[in-house]
């Protein structure tokens, strides 16, 4: 049973706590990556906040053995993990920063236990990736099916491809040694299941239940979460602010960390 009782939650989720402040900012990575994707963003907040970084079970340096397909068959399980982390660390007044699918995971957690959270920062959120009647998700059902099929049939695996090439990089001293084998190096099975859970989810109804002030950070050109989706989120969530970034792509925290950090700072100051 030991694997199922996180006797050491910190280790299971590879939790890292930084910063000089007291109010916690919990940074939750999105699909495909791990907490390292925040390394250009969180330094902007270290002075004022307590920075909490973690890897979801199955990602990065988390305890992979705690992963099971049955357990992580919905975003809710991930949301429960977020709550477990917050409870374990006794966090209160949490500013949750979620990228990509983590934005929805964070919202689900905030609906379940509103008392823990204070503000939600959603980077490239999407409640539903598939186009529905009167809703633009960005993908038609066929594309997602094709993606999932590709994931199923790709014998060599997406992520396996990545594994051997990641190595030390002397040009970039900021990349520590810990990166060498973990970043983006997900177990192909887990990547597959997570993709399924992510891209087939439809949490549009949940958006209406969100009560905390939210910042929706939307990139200008994002294949995964198009502008329409960001607008949908912002218009459905009661207490939300939409900010369209100049940055393009799906990862402004990597491609435009400064712009991303500034937008978050602005929001936190105006909503302080």
């Amino acid at each position: 049973m030991s694997t199922y009782q996180y006797t050491d939650i910190k280790k299971a989720f590879n939790i890292n706590i930084l910063g000089k402040g007291t109010q916690p900012m919990v940074f939750a990575h999105g699909y495909g990556c791990d907490q390292n994707m925040w390394r250009f963003v969180y330094p902007y907040f270290e002075e004022k906040y307590k920075i909490v970084l973690f890897d979801y079970i199955g990602a990065g340096n988390s305890d992979i053995s705690a992963y099971s397909k049955e357990k992580y068959n919905s975003l809710e399980s991930y949301a429960n993990d977020v709550l477990a982390i917050c409870e374990h660390l006794k966090l209160k007044d949490v500013i949750f920063v979620g990228h990509s699918v983590s934005a929805m995971i964070g919202l689900l957690a905030s609906i379940k236990k509103p008392s823990i959270f204070s503000k939600m920062i959603l980077i490239g959120p999407s409640p539903c990736y598939i186009n529905k009647e009167n809703y633009v998700g960005g993908f038609d059902k066929e594309s997602i099916d094709e993606l999932l099929e590709a994931l199923d049939s790709n014998y060599l695996g997406w992520s396996q491809n990545m594994a051997p090439i990641i190595m030390g990089n002397e040009d970039r001293p900021q990349l520590g040694k810990e990166l060498s084998n973990s970043f983006c190096n997900t177990d192909p099975e887990i990547a597959k299941n997570f993709a399924r859970v992510t891209f087939l989810s439809d949490n549009r109804e949940d958006l209406k239940k969100v009560s905390h002030p939210c910042l929706v950070l939307q990139c200008s050109q994002d294949v995964i979460a198009p502008v329409e989706v960001g607008q949908f989120v912002a218009s459905t969530v009661k207490n939300s602010t939409l900010k369209i970034l100049k940055a393009t792509g799906h990862c402004p925290n990597l491609s435009a960390p400064e712009e991303t950090a500034e937008a978050i700072k602005d929001f936190l100051e105006t909503n302080a």
């Binding site: 699909y31 495909g32 983006c184 994002d222 995964i224 990862c251």
Partner: peptide, 15 residues
Amino acid sequence: IYFETHFFPLIKMQG
């Protein structure tokens, strides 16, 4: 999707 979620982040990280 892979490009956005895996490939590009990795280029940004390690060049």
